[in-house]
Amino acid sequence: MSAFSAIDEEREIDRDEFTPGIEPQPTWCPGCGDFGVLKALKQAMPEVGRTPDETLLVTGIGCSGKLNSYFESYGFHTIHGRSLPVARAAKLANPGLEVIAAGGDGDGYGIGGNHFIHTARENHDMTYIVFNNEIFGLTKGQTSPTSPKGHKSKTQPHGSAKQPIRPLSQSLTAGASYVARTAAVNPNQAKEIIAEAIEHDGFAHIDFLTQCPTWNKDAKQYVPYVDVQQSDDYDFDVTDREEAGKMMYEVESKLHEGEVLTGRFYRDDDRMSYGEEKRAVGEMPDDPLAERYFDEDAEWERSADLMHYHR
């Protein structure tokens, strides 16, 4: 019998279960896009049939990192930029868990950029939501890796001389097997995309446009937006790498011309997740490693049995 009876439990799930019994006072500003992520996530969870006790929500540091303060599940609010390595180890240790990582654009594309590339490359079976407000929110509005060129802030008073990074293209190149962009102002699409991402068996990356009315003085609200899957103007195959890449490039360029394009941009349902790959080559046990520690009858190998190498 499993020591983790919450995992894969079959029962009705109510979206209220994801709201803490006593809701802490939110630290987000009124009108902040982060509320949109929280709401969409709460709605997506019952749809994918996962409960708070089998979900681990790992966040970084930033306004966005507070997500798990307002979301009822197991949570790990880590350090700036490091949600992904914590999250992916949890998934390897207990593949039955639903692991979701989340954080800001600075957190994920800047200080944690190396982990982003490698987690995508390895295709860990998890969901990664990046709150992209094109700004450092928590530290009061400095330029972030996604801020457009020319963006002025206290640390770039004459405007940023840097090109913003292209998060979707980078994700694709690195190896993510599901890449989408949604926006806080588009709650229905956001919920659907989160649900899809969670159900996807591999690294699912969502670039979530979250307006920051407090610091992003250009007051980007990401409206109007276009859902590329709904629009007749765009026709591409999300399972075709090349077409997806071209589309992403256009989407990223258009954002800075004021046109907000959202939707699913890439998915590869055939690629094995990292856990499966590792198991296939014999580098990971078939049963969840975490279970073994709670099994009183488990047999543990001893170093005494390795001594023949040293005689």
Binding site: F4, S5, E9, D53, E54, S69, G75, L97
Partner: peptide, 10 residues
Amino acid sequence: PGQKGGRFLA
């Protein structure tokens, strides 16, 4: 994580 009723925030 995964145990019933053990939710907390680290």
